[in-house]
């Protein structure tokens, strides 16, 4: 019960501050202290958002971005689980994964962009590569930390029941490290989203329409500041939905329900 109360309280506090921010915003926009191109009024932003929703543009582009990010995210998740599993199974592979992670983790995807263009071109493949690069390393780091943190009792109980190595990983190590996998997913999501938006802003339209980053970039080059804010609004909205509803709900149904965190 207290849990629900505190979440309701959180929403209340947020709504309160959002209202204050919006009011201040509007007062400043209307005060004329800034040119409209710097500080558009809320009405203009809402109109820009409305227009692009009606024309379907922003929806299409958001959808395009979301599909890309989901693809990249799933690939990374599976690859990270596979690589971490191999790493705990084999010393040689462990060294390899450790080295690769140490090299690649600190590299921002955007820094790799020129190289990625040469190797993979400027299509959706390149965007996926950047997303995978952004997600997979923090994911592996988290999963490996999770694997190391598992109480040996779980594995020994599994061995005692006659589990083979594969099933120890699949049935015990992965669920047992789920809290770590989840926090890896959170970090990965944030990084993937950032990488995607920046890549789209640099690459421009890949595919027919291009994604949300492209949308914002287009508003920028045509100096449509309200439109830019409309794009940012969509990004914030998706961020909140994913964090508060997707991840939080998943956590509620798994690790929280199981008393693991």
């Amino acid at each position: 019960m207290t849990n629900k109360d505190s979440s309701r309280n959180k929403i209340k506090t947020r709504l309160f501050w959002i209202t204050i921010i919006l009011i201040t915003w509007e007062i400043m926009a209307k005060s004329g202290a800034f040119p409209e191109a710097i500080f558009p009024s809320l009405l203009d932003i809402a109109r820009a958002l409305g227009d692009s929703v009606v024309s379907g543009e922003i929806l299409l582009q958001t959808g395009f971005s979301l599909v890309l990010i989901l693809e990249g995210f799933l690939i990374s998740l599976l690859a990270a689980i596979l690589m971490s599993s191999l790493a705990v199974s084999n010393k040689v592979f462990n060294g390899l994964v450790d080295t690769l992670t140490a090299i690649a983790h600190p590299l921002p995807g955007i820094a790799l962009l020129p190289l990625i263009i040469i190797w993979f071109g400027t299509g959706t493949l390149s965007i996926i590569v950047i997303i995978v690069h952004s997600v997979i390393w923090p994911m592996i780091l988290n999963i490996m930390t999770g694997f190391r943190a598992i109480s040996p009792v779980y594995k020994e109980a599994g061995l005692n029941f006659g589990l083979n190595h594969f099933r120890i990983i699949k049935d015990i190590m992965i669920p047992a490290s789920l809290p770590y996998v989840l926090s890896g997913m959170r970090i990965g999501w944030a990084r993937a989203w950032r990488a995607l938006i920046s890549a789209e802003m640099i690459f421009g339209a890949v595919g027919l329409k291009g994604g949300l980053g492209w949308y914002i970039f287009k508003q920028r080059v045509f100096m449509d500041t309200p439109g830019m804010f409309a794009g940012l609004f969509v990004i914030v909205l998706i961020g909140i939905i994913v964090e508060d509803y997707v991840f939080a709900a998943f956590e509620e149904r798994t690790v929280k329900k199981w008393g693991m965190i």
Binding site: S151, V153, Y154, P175, A176, T254, W258, G259, M260
Partner: peptide, 9 residues
């Protein structure tokens, strides 16, 4: 000895 030997999930 560990109470936490059942799989919590």
């Amino acid at each position: 000895q560990d109470f936490n030997q059942l799989f919590p999930w």
